[in-house]
Amino acid sequence: MVPFTYLEPASLDEALALLAEHGEDAKLIAGGTGLVNLMKQRLVRPDFVIGLRAIRALAGISEKDGLRIGALATIQSLEVSELVRRHAPLLAEACGHVATVRVRSMATLGGAMAHGDPNLDTPPALIAMDGQIVARTRRGERTIPVDRFFTGYFGTVLERDEIVTELLIPKQPAGSGTAFLKFLPATQDDYATVSVATRIALGADGTIREARVALGAAAMVPVRARMVEAALSGKASDEKTLGDAAPLVVDAIDPIADFRGSAEYKREMAVVHVRRALVEAAAKAKEAR
């Protein structure tokens, strides 16, 4: 492990001040599952590590025009939270697929966003729910849609002195159903070969009012498949229609070939799983009506 000085601010303001002061030389730590691994491999060598765990303002889940989730909420707490299960079942489901119970118990939702890893399970779920990220600097606060948050491989729009404080999940449309599929052809504890989160809202006449499709492990960043969404808007929610729209996902993705599959295979699997997730979400939406 690389050496560093650990700082533990008691308030968000104090944390922002420390981050502003140390900037390039500092890293924020919440659960640590991402950062500690990188520091142990000596790939990241901050002089200062700023621990966020004592900041009360970053904890907690509340319901107010949807859900407000403190950045420090652990993945495990979200998986089992009654509030999340009721108002954002897609997030609870995605959280249940994250790694193992130990990682879920340590890792936080804010950390999962700031880490910028395109293979994670929670970003596509948040994108499919129109989630937003609240981030703050000493200069002020901004709200960023999750689908515009990621800029490149392990890259985000966050400024050096900016801290993710909250995740917002708006009230989900009435009559909507969701699905999360994580394709794991090797073992059950693995990064996804591809993961898909979908949400379908049906209108009174049974046609698709609005669709959301997001993918993980399908490009350098978590992606939203807007072409698929657009193709489904106002259409019937039968399997044929959903299946015809699914192949449009290939324009939104750019998978990386690795030992989990060739780029071509991952593209094909994206199509299959987008279709399956849409079918599942549509079925749930019909039930919900």
């Binding site: 090797a186 073992t187 059950q188 504890d189 693995d190 990064y191 030992f259």
Partner: peptide, 16 residues
């Protein structure tokens, strides 16, 4: 070797 840690070298788990 590019499967250089247990995140990438996949041993069966209790679910497998």
């Amino acid at each position: 070797v590019i499967t250089a840690h247990l995140g990438d070298y996949k041993l069966p788990t209790a679910m497998d």
